[in-house]
Design a protein around this nucleic acid. Structure first.
Lengths: 106, 106
DNA sequence: AGTTAATTTCTATATTTCTGGAAATATAGT
DNA sequence: ACTATATTTCCAGAAATATAGAAATTAACT
């Protein structure tokens, strides 16, 4: 499940904003229970429209999922995407060239 | 070596740009040998000023280091910062709340 | 149908980021 | 001192991003 560089950059750019990073943290900590938009807003203390804007970013790159429950909208982190990013960094982008490794070994 | 959220976001934002992501890749692959600015420019095929701008970003957050060798400037990746980011994602930001984990364990 | 709560969409503005041309700087060789 | 190479800094325009107020939507309840 290797990420394309374009896709990886767009995923990583989501983490590059302090507000979205905190949203991700909240949703990871919420785990399978997820967290309604309103609760995230209360924790982060930002405007509805601003939060909604960030959530749609995260949704667009598949980092979160949402499920309507009556009037509230519950958000969940998508662990697959989190894992994909970590894998990209540790296995794809930030790994030394094998030929370089071979050189220093022998 | 835990990163503050602000610092983590500024580090991660560097990875959120396709050009900088490729610069990082080049420098990781270059390993200890590093790579001169000019060679990076040839590989990525971008203007000097644009590259210089990105390099100063990366330098500012400590993701790269540079060493002058006569007229050329050699760039090196700073593995510590790479590791710090991966650790932040895997141990700090994207880890479920221990109490949640305790709950699902029983 | 009317009301309330939750959330999004629309619109506008402010801010930041990206890019590249031109000029400046640094280093080395002649 | 002059020239060539490498790189940065300065400047400015274009594009993208962030923020929030107001209006619109959705769903539940009365």
């Amino acid at each position: 499940m290797n990420l394309d560089y374009e896709i990886a950059a767009s995923l990583l750019s989501q983490f590059g904003n302090i507000t979205r990073l905190k949203i991700v943290r909240e949703l990871v900590r919420a785990g399978k229970a997820g967290k309604p938009v309103g609760e995230i807003r209360n924790v982060l203390d930002i405007h509805n429209s601003t939060l909604s804007h960030h959530l749609s970013h995260l949704r667009n790159v598949g980092l979160i999922r949402q499920k309507r429950e009556g009037t509230i909208l519950r958000c969940f982190i998508n662990y697959d995407q989190i894992n994909a990013i970590v894998s990209f960094l540790t296995e794809e982008c930030c790994v030394a060239d094998p030929t370089y490794l071979a050189n220093i070994k022998g």
